[in-house]
Amino acid sequence: MKDDQSEHDGHRMPSDPALRVQALESLLIEKGLVDSQALDALVDAYEHRIGPHNGARVIARAWTDPAYKARLLADATAAIAELGFGGLQGEHMVAVENTPAVHNLVVCTLCSCYPYPLLGLPPVWYKSAAYRSRAVIDPRGVLREFGLELPAATQVRVWDSTAELRYLVLPQQPAQTQGMTAEQLAALVTRDAMIGVALVRAGQEPAGGAG
């Protein structure tokens, strides 16, 4: 475990918050304000059902259906709802398209806003002070730390999620994947590519996209 990381992921003092949370949960159950099974259902939804595989289906559909792509870019909320996704922290969606000339990157500098219905809950790095502070002032440096060196001629557009709009990056489809089915394509689309810190590569395992 790296030192910086431990500042942000709770490894530093696990027992204390664990006890405090247990006390708080007992209290709120005793008061009738929460239901333990509802808490289980909320955790289960985000641990097992809602994640980047949802967003990957949207991207793969856009790559294989030009009319859908046009709808996604014009009204992302409605186009995403066509595939059955939406709701909590994805009520109002915007899709931004990567092209050879433009690369998009999403951040929330004020908190950690993130499109839950499509990507699940945000990873620790997305919520970190390092990412939130630097994505707007040094996006190219941040991308370099993810192993992505963009040509100077590529315009970088950073989207700071300061309102209730949530952003989804529509990555470029790798040229070698033309002709693949939407299902095959979805397996290539990673969480990081949909945030804009990675490109989609042909034949890669969906690293960082499994969660």
Binding site: E47, P123, W125, A130, R132, S133, F146, D160, A207, G211
Partner: peptide, 18 residues
Amino acid sequence: LGGMHGMGSVQPERDEPV
């Protein structure tokens, strides 16, 4: 936080749990 310095480098974690 936007634009602040001194917050360190971004540290992605492989196969991060939810």
